[in-house]
Amino acid sequence: MHYTGTIWRPPYEAASLLLEVTAGCTHHKCKFCTLYNDLPFKFRMSPLKDIESDLQEVKRAAKSWNSERTHRVFLTGANPFVLSYDKLTAIAELIRKYLPSVTSIGSFARITDVIPKTDEELAKLRDMGYDGLTIGIETGDDEALRFMNKGYTSADIIEQCQRLDAAGIHYSFFYLVSISGAGRGEIGAKLSADICNQTHPALIGANMLTIYPDSELFAEIQRGNWQEEGEVEKYKEVRTLIENLQIPAIFAAMGASNAYQFHGQLPKDKKKLLAFLDEIIENVSEDELQRYRRSVHHL
Rank of each mutant, 00 (worst) to 15 (best):
A252Y: 00
L18C: 05
A182Y: 06
W65D: 12
R72H: 15
K190A: 15
F81W: 10
Q160W: 04
I7P: 00
F74C: 05
K271T: 06
D194E: 15
P248N: 12
I250V: 15
I242K: 04
L176S: 03
K59W: 01
C33E: 00
V114M: 07
E243L: 13
E279V: 09
A275M: 06
V21P: 01
I51M: 03
Q56G: 05
E52F: 02
P267N: 10
E220C: 15
R291S: 13
P10S: 09
Q246H: 11
E279S: 14
E68H: 13
I95L: 09
R69P: 00
K49H: 11
D269S: 11
T210A: 14
L241Y: 02
S295V: 07
T76E: 04
E186P: 02
D119P: 12
T76I: 10
A109I: 09
D54A: 10
Y98P: 03
Q56L: 12
T70C: 14
S172P: 06
N79W: 08
I179F: 01
F74P: 02
L125G: 06
F276K: 13
I187P: 01
Q290T: 14
L274Y: 08
K271F: 04
T240D: 01
I105K: 01
E243F: 11
S215W: 09
V21L: 03
D194C: 07
K117A: 11
D50R: 04
I7F: 01
Q261L: 05
A123N: 02
M1T: 11
F262E: 00
L209H: 14
I7S: 01
D214G: 07
S285T: 15
D38A: 01
E231G: 08
Y260D: 04
L217K: 08
S84R: 04
K236L: 12
S67V: 10
Y36A: 06
W8T: 05
L125H: 07
W65Q: 10
V21I: 12
E68A: 15
A182C: 05
L18H: 12
A78S: 14
T4V: 12
I158N: 04
A253S: 10
S285I: 14
Y212L: 15
P213V: 11
G185F: 02
G5W: 08
L299V: 15
I280K: 04
Y175S: 01
Q162I: 07
M1N: 11
D141C: 13
K272P: 01
S154N: 08
F43E: 03
T76P: 09
I7W: 00
G5R: 03
E159K: 15
E233N: 13
E120A: 14
I157F: 05
R223H: 13
C30T: 00
E120H: 08
I137K: 00
E233G: 14
G224C: 10
A62D: 12
A253H: 00
L266K: 04
R293S: 13
E243C: 05
V177Q: 01
R146H: 09
R291H: 14
F276T: 10
K49L: 08
Y36I: 06
N149R: 15
C25K: 02
I7T: 13
A78Y: 01
N37R: 11
T26E: 01
S285Y: 13
D38Q: 06
N79R: 09
Q290S: 14
A14E: 10
I280N: 02
S192V: 07
